[in-house]
Simulated assay, not measured.
Amino acid sequence: MSTNTDISKLDDLIHTVIDSIKGFENSAEDVPDGRFASFFRDMARERREVVQTLQAQSRALGGTPTDQGSVAGTLHRRWEDLRSALGGGSDKAVIEEVERGEDYLKEEFERAMNDTNISEETRAVIRSCYDSVRRGHDTARDLKRQFEGAM
């Protein structure tokens, strides 16, 4: 186990969670009738706490944690902005995108928790953050199912 491996894994997760924050903020603005805006803002706030926890662990290990999302996340948000501008921004479409992003984030955290190359200390921090990720994922999944059931 290497401190550099831990820092690298933490930075990967930080990028992804920052993408999640920005996605929730975009979704709060894009949802057509605003009925999910409060949920999206709450999730963005909760994810900021996750980023702070991951950044603190990186600093404790001697890292200089990022405060930027990924290029892929930025490109995805621009695509969503374009789709919304072209009339594809229904509540259902926004919820589907949020749920898709939550699937990805949850998988990233699960991969990190199963990485045998990171220390138990870092794994414990990641696991504590995973609770928030799982709650957000499950809520987004349930919202998506509500839309599917309404069809």
Rank of each mutant, 00 (worst) to 15 (best):
M1S: 12
S2M: 10
N4T: 06
D6I: 07
D6A: 10
I7F: 01
S8E: 14
K9D: 01
K9W: 00
L10E: 00
L10G: 01
D11E: 14
D12A: 13
L13T: 06
I14W: 08
I14C: 12
I14T: 11
H15C: 01
H15N: 13
I18N: 08
D19N: 05
I21G: 03
I21P: 09
K22Y: 03
K22W: 08
K22D: 13
G23Q: 04
G23S: 05
F24K: 04
E25A: 04
N26C: 05
A28R: 06
E29N: 01
D30C: 06
V31F: 07
V31S: 02
D33N: 13
D33M: 07
G34K: 02
F36G: 01
A37Q: 09
A37D: 03
S38H: 00
F39H: 11
F40Y: 14
D42I: 01
D42S: 13
D42L: 11
M43Y: 03
A44C: 02
E46T: 15
E46H: 09
R47S: 09
Q52L: 13
Q55S: 14
Q55W: 09
A56L: 15
S58T: 14
R59M: 15
R59S: 09
G62W: 03
G62E: 03
G63Q: 08
D67A: 15
G69H: 10
G69L: 04
G69T: 12
A72Q: 02
A72I: 06
G73C: 00
T74V: 13
T74A: 13
H76T: 10
H76D: 11
R77W: 01
R77M: 07
R77G: 03
R78C: 12
R78T: 14
W79T: 10
W79V: 09
L82T: 14
L82K: 04
R83M: 06
S84P: 02
A85P: 03
A85Q: 05
L86C: 11
G88R: 09
G88L: 14
S90R: 01
D91S: 15
D91H: 01
A93T: 02
V94Q: 02
I95G: 11
E97G: 14
V98D: 14
R100F: 06
G101A: 07
E102W: 10
E102S: 04
D103A: 00
Y104E: 10
L105A: 07
L105R: 08
K106L: 06
K106G: 08
K106F: 10
E107R: 13
E107S: 12
F109G: 05
E110M: 13
E110D: 08
N114C: 03
T116C: 07
T116R: 15
T116I: 05
I118R: 07
S119F: 00
S119V: 04
E120I: 03
E120F: 05
T122R: 13
T122Q: 07
R123S: 05
R123V: 00
A124H: 11
V125F: 05
R127D: 08
R127H: 01
S128H: 05
C129M: 12
Y130M: 11
D131A: 11
D131N: 10
S132N: 14
V133W: 04
R135C: 02
G136W: 06
H137P: 06
A140M: 05
F147R: 11
F147I: 01
E148Q: 12
A150H: 12
A150I: 10
M151K: 14
